[in-house]
Design a protein around this nucleic acid. Structure first.
Length: 477
RNA sequence: GGCGGCGUAGCCAAGCGGUAAGGCAAUGGUUUGCAAAACCAUCAUUCACCAGUUCGAUUCUGGUCGCCGCCUCCA
């Protein structure tokens, strides 16, 4: 069964195809770096990263491009507020974004182009559109004429000349159609600018993604992703510009993720509204990391299909944390068992307890438009089977073969193979190990008062001690 | 006004024509010095509501109610 994806343009699932067999060229709109990220920004990063991981797991070669918008109105305004240059501001928040994403286990893109480093490509593209007649110049800049592109509205299903648009879109008597959008903006005094055939100015927002995907993928993408709010007008405009310029199909599959929402009256309320900085309901990622492990955040996001709305409530992170524990308890036990066994080669065994079937279910789920909730069900099934195999003292080689399959699934989901990495905390603590030894001496003498006191004491400090037969283990919670 | 989406157990969430996956929580049992973990078992006659199509609908069609998003920057 080939991978199927839901196309926003077709409003239906379709088989994933690519220009070049075995290779996927994928572009995902990245952030405008003018402030910190909230968990809403984490969703596209995590879900498209997971898609990429699964495609690579399936043997496809993926070129994953995700841009940084480092020049636009918001950045200019914010840098003025802070009294620093736009370059400095953009650099600061790009660094923060990259750190946050790395913590979430989001792989670095193959290419991470910055808008400000592709101005010549954008000018060339705009020039081409002016020359072929789909763009025109006014004192305010260069505009794309939507009336010259017959397929305008193909992606979003939106019809031009909507009377409601006129009240919302910036009015300008020199524009041919109210929906015409800026390709190039003439610089106002004091604004950053680049020289161009139309005088000093800067690019419009939509043109950058076209220019960069044009440069790195020859204006032909297999997958273009982003948040649902980008479908219109951003992606509709990108499509129009790119196809008007090349005459070739720009994108085969448009994929959009749903929003993270928050209760209107705070996290306790059930009727969610879209999270956003301007709504004042943003839950910043750097705050999220204080209350939840990166892996739990990731598991929570993947617990809902990427196109569905995702309501945020603090307790959901706790649920994810508990579910994660179930996975890592199994992995810990497995590691302990395998450490005691003589060196075994996974090839010597066949995956214990039908783990092979579990992986097939996992793949089937992922192939169906990246159905991560269903894939997770397969993963938990695998955990249960492995636990049973452990309990039944299955041969080490079989356990190892099964474990490798489980690790493969975890890798697709971007969940770390070890608890410590998932929690983002450090390794063994000498003090814990010392007290663990003293406690075991007490237990050997049946001095349970002392042993319980040590266990309770550590529990208060976030370290959980568990006895497994004669030995004891600890985990940081 | 136009376009689109959502409503499944206490909570989260898949399924989308053949009789309700999974997770969290809960309960009973096995195990344990006691716990924890693990294992076994229990946990929706029912999928917002009302009609219709069908041998059969949570899944398709029409309508009603409730919630949300896009149409302006937005993940």
């Amino acid at each position: 069964m080939p991978i199927h994806v839901y196309s926003t343009e077709k409003r239906a699932k379709e088989p994933l195809t690519s220009i070049e067999p075995g290779r996927i060229r994928m572009y995902v709109c990245g952030p405008t770096v003018y402030d910190s990220c909230h968990i809403g920004h984490a969703r596209p990063a995590v879900v498209f990263d997971t898609m990429r991981r699964f495609m690579e797991y399936s043997g496809l070669l993926v070129t994953f491009i995700s841009n940084i918008t480092d020049i636009d109105d918001k950045i200019i305004n914010r840098s003025r507020e802070l009294g620093i240059s736009w370059r400095e501001l953009a650099r600061r928040y790009q660094d923060e974004y990259e750190r946050d994403m790395a913590r979430l286990g989001v792989l670095s893109p193959s290419i991470r182009p910055r808008a400000s480093e592709h101005i010549p490509e954008m000018i060339e593209l705009v020039q081409g559109l002016v020359e072929n007649g789909t763009a025109y110049v006014t004192p305010k800049g260069v505009w794309f004429d939507v009336g010259k592109f017959a397929a305008y509205g193909r992606l979003s299903g939106r019809i031009a000349d909507d009377e409601h648009t006129e009240h919302r879109v910036e009015q300008d008597e020199e524009k041919h159609n109210q929906q015409d959008f800026a390709l190039w903006k003439t610089a106002k005094p004091g604004e950053p600018f680049w020289e161009s055939p139309w005088g000093p100015g800067r690019p419009g927002w939509h043109i950058e993604c076209s220019a960069m995907s044009g440069k790195y993928c020859d204006f032909q993408l297999d997958i273009h992703g982003g948040g649902a709010d980008l479908a219109f007008p951003h992606h509709e405009n990108e499509l129009a510009q790119s196809e008007a310029y090349t005459g070739k199909r720009f994108v085969r599959h448009w994929l959009h993720n749903g929003f993270i929402t928050v209760g209107k009256d705070g996290p306790g309320d059930d009727s969610g509204e879209k999270m956003g900085k301007s709504k004042g309901n943003a839950f910043w990622l750097h705050d999220a990391f204080k209350v939840a492990s990166p892996a739990a955040l990731r598991l929570w996001i993947l617990g809902t299909h990427y196109r569905m709305p995702l309501l945020y409530k603090p307790e959901f992170l706790t649920h994810a944390e508990n579910a994660l524990d179930r996975i890592y308890n199994c992995l810990d036990e497995l590691r302990r068992t395998l450490d005691q066994a003589k060196s075994v080669q996974p090839e010597e065994g066949h995956a214990a307890n039908g783990m092979g079937e579990v992986v097939e279910q996992f793949k089937t789920a992922m192939e169906d438009d990246f159905n991560t909730p269903q894939a997770l069900a397969a993963l938990y099934d695998g955990v249960g089977r492995l636990n049973a195999a452990l309990k039944n003292q299955a041969p080490a080689a079989d356990l190892k073969a099964a474990a490798n399959l489980l690790y493969g699934m975890l890798g697709v989901l971007g969940l770390p193979p070890e608890r410590q990495a998932a929690a983002g905390s450090g390794g063994a603590d000498g003090l814990v190990l010392l007290l663990l030894r003293l406690r075991n001496e007490a237990r050997a003498k049946k001095d349970f008062a002392t042993s319980d006191r040590i266990r309770d004491g550590w529990k208060e400090r976030g370290v959980e001690i568990n006895d497994r037969g004669g030995e004891s283990t600890w985990t940081r919670k």
